Structure formats: C-alpha cells, structure tokens
Computed example of a mutant assay.
Amino acid sequence: MEALRIGEVARRTGLTQRTLRHYDELGLLVPSDRSGADYRLYSHDDLVRLLAIQHLKSLGLSLAEVRDALDAPGGDAASLLRRHAEDVERRIVAEQELLARLRSLARAAEAGWDEVLDAIALSERLRHPEPAVRFRAALTGHATAPFDDLVELLRTDPEPGVREAATWALTQQPDGAVGRLDQALASGDDQSRHALAHVLGKLRDPAAVPLLARLLRDEAGEVAAKAAFGLGQIGGAGAVDALMGALGDARSLVRDEVAAALARVDGADEPLLAAVTDPAPTVRSLAAEVLGLRASPGSGPALAGLLHDPDREVRFAALMALGQIPGDAAGRAIEGEVDSPDEHTRLLARRLVADRQAFAAPRARNARAT
C-alpha cells in the first residue's frame, strides 16, 4: 500500500488533521516516514495502529492508557480493564445522583430560578457537616426539601436526632410517599429497611400495611421488630392479620414487639382467642400473654381453659394473664391453682390472689363510705 499523507488519512478516517498531529505529539501515532517536503506519511501498519487506537478509545480509555496498552502488548490488560470498569462504575453512581437531583430540582422549578436556587441552598443545608444545621433544615424546610435528600438523611445520618427530623419531614410529604419510600429503601441494607419500617409506621397510612407485613418477615430481626411496631401504630384488620401471623416467629425480639403491638390495636381479641388453641405451644403462650395485656373480661374462660394445657409455659402464661383480667370468674380460676402441685404455679397463684384481695379492699371501703 502506498503511504498516505495526513490529509488523506483524515479524509478516510473522519478524524481531523489536528487530532492526528496531537497523536503524533503524544507519541501515540508517529508516522513511519516523512516526504521530501517534510509531510507526514502513514504506512499500512500506521493505519492498523490507528484503528487499534480508536477501538481502545471506544472503551473509554484515556490516550495515555491507550498508548501504554499498544506499546506494551504483553502488559496486564485484565488489571487495566478492571480498574477502568471501577472508574466507570463510580462515574455512573455520580451521574445517577446528579440525575436524581436534577429531577428533584425540576419539580421545584415550576415557578422559576429563584425556587431552584432556594432548593439548592436547602439541599446544601441538609448535607451540612454540622448536625444542628441538618436538623433545622429538615424541620423548617420539610415542605420544599428534596425527597431524595431526606431519604439519604434517614438512611445514613449518624445523628439519631437528625434521622428523626428527616422521618418527620418525610411524613409531611404529599400523597404517594409510601410507594416512593418503598422504591428508595426496600432494596437497601438492613439500616435502610429499618428506616423504611420506621417511617412507614410514622405515616399512619393504611396503604403501608402490606409493605410492613413484608418487612415483618425480614431476615434481620431489628427490621422485623420495627415493622411490628409500625403495624401497631397503624392498626386495622390487615395489621392484626399480619401480626397474628408472626406470633410464632422464632426470634424473641420480634415476638415481644408483636405482642406489644397486638396489645394496643383494636380488633385483636377474637383472633387471639382463636390462637389459644393453636398447635404450637409458643403461639398459645404468647396469645395468653397478650390477652392478659389487653385485660378483656371476655377472655377469662379461654385463659382458664389454658390452665390445663399440657405445656407448662402455656399454663404459667395463662395464670399470669388471668391476674390482669377483672371479674370474679378470673379470680376463681386463680384460686383454683393455689394448691397446685407445681411449686411455681402455686406461688404465683397465691401472690395473685393476695394482690387481688389487696386491690379489692380499698374499693370495698370506698363503696361503704358512699
């Protein structure tokens, strides 16, 4: 092949002569020859190298990296490509963050650039190194604070007070916050899912119940326990059903929070009474405990029946629960255990009888006085 002058190479490749001269100056593509008039002359091998340059550039490699790769073909290509891939990943993350911020700012830009600048200033305060500044920004700027910035505070801020301020600010977001929170946090780490359960409970939105029911089954006990707490905050039939399904959770941390939630929500008496016949002793025991916390007189007969349960822990839980149930029927059931052959049951029954008598004495005196 006849050597080509720089103009012909530029025409055939679509590159500018300035680019080819720059490659020459860098030592990336030095023409193999010069004409008598000192024009650059490119051989076939030069054009092959130029094609290789363009291929490597298409991977996003810098010109210096391309030169090193071509000048040392036996070098560690895998390491170079891995490092470059890591750089690309970092740039993608940064670009995604920028994209999210631009979209957030676009929502604030409907009235003009003043609102955009205000939103940027608020965003900077939410990222301020001083916790007090971040705290005030979340509280005072909740109406215009970018959703993504508040979520980031809730997810990662080291200060509990700042996270709580971000939680409150997110509860002031317009309708649709439940779905957006799920998208932003559900697929994150344990801390992100814990934050999601926390803010969903604070929202008190029935639409959050299915999400909290899912988090109640989370592999992280702290997340599941926070979901139970959130379901107790929201209440309703869906929340009760989800909590009842977790009565037999193997983790004591979760069971304790489930019990506390069921003790305070409306509509739990009937499913709890049904649960005292569950095949699992753990479920029967916890159902009895919660019925005691609810102190509903109607649960007395079911709890009295559990005093004959084959499981000792269930019997003990039922006796403890009866101690919190008002009425003579519960009292008689307790008195029936004061001579129990089981020492712990006997001692507890006697203490409960004494407590009920001590409580009843002032009431009787007050009744006589009136």
Rank of each mutant, 00 (worst) to 15 (best):
F147R: 00
R193E: 06
L247V: 06
L56D: 07
Q183I: 11
A250L: 13
G300S: 15
V209A: 01
A208P: 00
E343F: 09
R264H: 03
L303T: 06
G27F: 10
S104I: 07
D311A: 15
T19P: 00
L211I: 15
I325N: 03
F229T: 14
P158L: 06
W168R: 14
K202A: 15
A132C: 02
V223K: 09
A361V: 13
R356E: 04
I6E: 01
H22S: 04
L196R: 02
L243S: 01
S296I: 02
A64V: 14
S285I: 03
A109D: 05
V48A: 14
L181P: 01
D339Q: 12
L153F: 12
Q54M: 07
Q172R: 15
H128W: 09
R363N: 09
K57D: 02
A119G: 05
L215M: 03
P271S: 03
R11D: 05
A166F: 11
P131M: 10
Q54S: 11
A143V: 05
S296Y: 09
L102C: 12
L348V: 08
Q173L: 14
Q173W: 13
I53F: 08
G75M: 08
S79T: 15
L117T: 11
P362W: 09
V338W: 08
V48M: 12
A69D: 01
T19R: 09
V276Y: 06
A228H: 06
L200E: 03
P158F: 08
A317Q: 12
T345E: 11
A121N: 01
A304D: 00
D241S: 14
T370L: 15
G235K: 01
P210A: 10
D205S: 10
R107V: 14
A239I: 03
A220M: 10
L247W: 02
L51P: 00
T345A: 13
D182G: 05
H128P: 04
G292D: 01
D148M: 07
D269Y: 00
G327S: 06
E8H: 10
S123T: 14
A274H: 10
G179L: 11
S32I: 07
V88Y: 03
L20K: 03
A360E: 14
V88P: 00
A242M: 09
D68M: 08
E257H: 12
V353A: 07
R363H: 14
P326E: 10
